[in-house]
């Protein structure tokens, strides 16, 4: 009969009217995300060996690792910077990281929204106690300002700038 399909449809929507709703009240109720969810990154600057494998694996030049060599020739990390605005969340960097547990890894915290585009950068700086600082020129590098880090690295001649990530950040 013509119209039967229409009535059936009315029945379905009436049924759904009384069924439980799936809306999540977001800021109060946080979503229950699976372990592997790629929200944003957590980074452990103490286990990182500054090997730069992550920044080489990245297809988009998101990661920039800045380091210097101490007098024994060991790599010391200065600054680890990620421009999440260019990130594909592909996980190649995490896959490439050789340390266990991974120095760079995903976490489920997904709130990346920000008002200023500088805030999309994730920057971790590592400072060393004055006694450990080998050359005096290293001291400004530890403060974390990009210009200072650049000049300090230039002075020591050993700063590794591995990727083509655009300049910026604070």
């Amino acid at each position: 009969m013509y119209g039967l399909g229409l009535l059936k449809g009315l029945g379905v929507s009436l049924k759904r009217f009384w069924m439980p709703k799936i809306t999540q009240k977001y800021p109060e109720v946080q979503p229950d995300l699976p372990q592997r969810s790629k929200g944003s990154f957590k980074y452990d600057k103490d286990t990182c060996t500054s090997c730069e494998l992550c920044s080489m694996a990245c297809p988009n030049g998101v990661i920039k690792v800045e380091w210097h060599k101490d007098e024994s020739g060991k790599k010391r990390l200065d600054r680890y910077r990620m421009n999440l605005g260019h990130c594909l969340f592909c996980g190649l960097c995490v896959e490439a990281c050789p340390t266990t547990p991974k120095s760079i890894d995903f976490k489920t915290d997904f709130a990346l929204g920000c008002w200023r585009k500088e805030d999309i950068y994730r920057i971790w700086t590592k400072s060393y106690p004055a006694a450990e600082a080998v050359a005096p020129v290293m001291a400004p590098a530890a403060t974390g300002s990009p210009a200072a880090a650049g000049s300090a690295g230039g002075a020591s001649g050993s700063t590794g700038v591995a990727s083509g990530a655009p300049e910026g950040g604070n």
Partner: peptide, 10 residues
């Protein structure tokens, strides 16, 4: 509200 209820939302 009614539209929401028909569509499994609130």
């Amino acid at each position: 509200r009614a539209a929401g209820f028909f569509q499994e939302r609130v």
